[in-house]
């Protein structure tokens, strides 16, 4: 498979703080690549730098679309999209206007059909369609995430980056978001998925990177990473999709000594053994 994104020794610094140091990473066409890691590992800095939103050192190249490396605008015109953790919707505008603006740079392409694109997004997110004339700022958290994702999909992205799409959402909504991610994967959209919800992310991913303290600690096929003892200990032990802590189980903020330790890591998963369920009851009382 051809490489879409090639990062070579990417570093990001804020004043004196190093957020990322020498990260090298590849994302391939038709695959879902995931980057997992705890809070403050530099995941958001990574996608922001890839999108050109923040200055960075090292090389960001898009081998298929060399021009895209010029600026954030050039990336968007190459149909490389980021759905940021902060959503960044246009609050006072309607859902419909937010979606239309998603296709802003495509509006002058030949054969551009706004209505067809809107219909596509409406099919994926019927709830957005119901609220089409509502101001974006009146939406609930889950709907906002759907709108942010829908806005990106309006561009029919060739490479889509999702930053913590499940953050702060109820399990039901998380399931819906992941359903859409799987659908996009089937449609052949290459995805770079940033997640704290390691289990859900690894389940859809082909390839995974584990980021900690701004450095890649581990990489490999999703299956290998999922099987890695250290990952199991640090992330999967508590990354329950329907977990009692809500969708995003918070890993320890600072993991002393790398992957293997962590205060909650050794705690057995209460609902182990129900892996087959797409989402599982957190409380377990009813099962």
């Amino acid at each position: 498979m051809s490489i879409l994104l090639d990062l070579e020794r990417l570093s990001v610094r804020y004043n004196r703080l190093t957020a990322l140091s020498d990260v090298s990473l590849e994302a391939r066409a038709g695959e879902v690549t995931t980057v997992i890691g705890p809070n403050g590992a530099g995941k958001t800095s990574l996608v922001n730098a890839v999108m050109g939103l923040i200055p960075s050192r090292g090389r960001v190249t898009f081998p298929l679309w060399p021009k895209a490396a010029l600026s954030t605008g050039a990336r968007v015109r190459a149909r490389i999209c980021l759905v940021p953790e902060t959503r960044d919707l246009f609050g006072p505008m309607t859902v419909l206007d937010n979606l239309r603006l998603g296709a802003f740079v495509a509006r002058s392409e030949r054969g551009f059909d706004m209505e067809a694109r809107l219909a596509e997004v409406a099919r994926l997110f019927p709830r957005l369609d119901e609220r089409r004339h509502q101001q974006a700022q009146t939406l609930s958290g889950g709907e906002r995430q759907m709108l942010a994702l829908g806005r990106a999909l309006m561009l029919r992205p060739r490479f889509l980056m999702l930053d913590e799409p499940s953050l702060g959402l109820a399990p039901l909504v998380v399931a819906e978001i992941f359903r859409v991610i799987e659908q996009l994967k089937r449609d052949g959209v290459a995805i770079l998925l940033i997640e704290q919800n390691a289990r859900a992310a690894l389940r859809v991913a082909d390839h995974a990177y584990v980021l900690e303290g701004g450095e890649v600690q581990l990489q490999g096929s999703a299956a290998t990473v999922m099987a890695d003892a250290r990952v199991v200990g640090a992330y999967l032990g508590m990354g329950r999709t329907g977990g009692a802590q809500g969708p995003v189980a918070e890993p320890p903020e600072r993991i002393e000594g790398g992957l293997a330790s962590g205060s909650e890591a050794s705690r057995p998963a209460r609902d182990a053994g129900v892996h087959h369920a797409r989402t599982r009851p957190a409380i377990g009382a009813a099962s």
Partner: peptide, 12 residues
Amino acid sequence: ANVEVQEAYLGV
């Protein structure tokens, strides 16, 4: 244990 809670909140 409430079924409605599990359905609504937990997506079961």
